[in-house]
Amino acid sequence: MKQSPLFALLAEFERVEELRSAAERVRDEGYTQFEAYAPFPVAGLAEAIGFHTVLLPMAVLGGGIFGCVAGFLLQYYVAVIAYPINIGGRPLNSWPAFIPITFETTVLCASLTAVLGMLAFNGLPRPHHPLFAVPAFRRATRDRFFIAVASSDPKFESESTRRFLQGLNPSEVHDVPR
């Protein structure tokens, strides 16, 4: 297969309702490598493009459990093994006193996982992206809505895909060069 000179075709919409229904139409048409862009989180848009994930919440749960266990073990190691202090025969593993710090390390590790995981799964930071070459795409962070069908999609064919996107009634269809 020869490589298309395009990275994607980008359809621009003026209203959020148009974006949602168009995204569903693209999905139903059988495209898989496409993406919808909006200047704010749109309820149901991820479902409309057929995207579902629980990876991040699971990672955060894992981070939290790690923080909890590691935080407690650190205190246990210090108080019982590395630096035991006998104060009137009280137990060295005085676990109730270790709860506050265990809680803090749980929250710290879970939060770090949430932020770093969000960035990592989203493929950020990514300083450059072909979409940034389209001047109209600047409004994707302001008041316009976009659907990009990638040329890597098996169903992508520059003319027919363009006709299909135009049939979705966008205000314009842009070429995204590689």
Binding site: V42, A46, F51, T53, L119, F121, L124, H128
Partner: peptide
């Protein structure tokens, strides 16, 4: 950091 506001971005963003 290259934020583009794609539906996938936003979904993970909202989760986070």
């Amino acid at each position: 950091m290259g934020w583009r506001g794609s539906a996938r971005h936003w979904r993970r963003y909202e989760q986070a």
